[in-house]
Design a protein around this nucleic acid. Structure first.
Lengths: 159, 159
DNA sequence: TTGATATCATTTGCATACGAATGAATTTGA
DNA sequence: TCAAATTCATTCGTATGCAAATGATATCAA
């Protein structure tokens, strides 16, 4: 440590600080919620990829939400799956290129771009939803059922 | 829905399924741990950006870890902050371009690229760490102290 | 010793993710 | 009604994030 060479003077300062406040002087990155949140998300994405190789989580989210609510505008879909306009455009473009969704213009409001599942897209999402349940289960596997319920409740408060 | 035209027959099927298993037939994206994890992470990144505008969370993580452990190889740093080799290279390149880290070759092992904080980088991270504590606090603000402790414990199990 | 492995770093390609700027269309309000 | 504000979508630029391929170097093992 840097203060070893001048330990006498520095020691006094450190002791005073510690006497004033019980606060930890060190900063431990691995204890910060943002860092752990990022790692937990990484782990989940890896689990997802192991179960569903041909779709990313955002792509799955778009299909699942379309399956849930039916035809919507691209922007509205983005709101529903927490993606900004630029991001959702890319996701939808790739799903369209693969024939899983189709686009059409809104009859009345000419600004809107309507997105809908194709038959193939519907078949795909209905086939994948059971796998998604497995993904959720595997992600939460390190927790007991009670812990998982607590975790989901608290995580929801932060999202 | 496709079964509307044959609703009578489908209704029977659905009821039988529900009788067999108490399982929920609907799939609710907003209840899946991966989706909420992604949103919680998004919220944290937004809070981070509001407090520290000129650095991203990964860049901060790199500086904070370098401050903690001192000079290391680029790959080793990546391991410590949970980034693969390709990602950490980009982060370090940008920090180097801003004069916050400096690179050097390992004397013995010529494969390794050593990374270290510059004086400016050290000054920056020491100035920012108090803000990072605020970021952690604000991210966890929706939870009580007890809930936050529980959450951190459970989240760590998933990371 | 040397051939097979393993490690470190780089590069390429693809996929989010978001701020900011832009343009078209719609809605609002004086 | 019509100008201002808003909404929807697109585009650009920047920054992760990871798989896969490659090259250089180091280590291991027969």
């Amino acid at each position: 440590m840097g203060w070893a060479a001048v330990s006498a003077g520095e020691d006094v300062r450190l002791k005073l600080v510690e006497a004033d406040e019980p606060e930890e002087n060190d900063y431990h990155l691995q204890e910060q919620v943002g860092f752990i949140l990022r790692k937990a998300h990484q782990r989940h994405v890896a689990i997802f990829a192991a179960h569903i190789a041909d779709l990313t989580p955002p792509q799955f989210a778009a299909l699942a939400k379309l399956h849930d609510v039916g035809e919507t505008s691209q922007n509205q879909l983005g709101t529903l799956i927490a993606m900004d306009a630029a991001t959702v455009k890319g996701v939808i473009d790739r799903l369209k290129a693969r024939g899983l969704v189709e686009l059409s213009k809104h009859e009345v409001d000419k600004r809107r771009l309507l997105v809908n599942l194709t038959a193939e897209g519907r078949e795909a999402i209905e086939r994948l939803i059971p796998l998604a349940r497995d993904i959720t289960a595997e992600t939460l596997a390190p927790l007991s059922a009670k812990e998982a319920a607590t975790f989901m409740r608290l995580l929801s408060k932060l999202a």
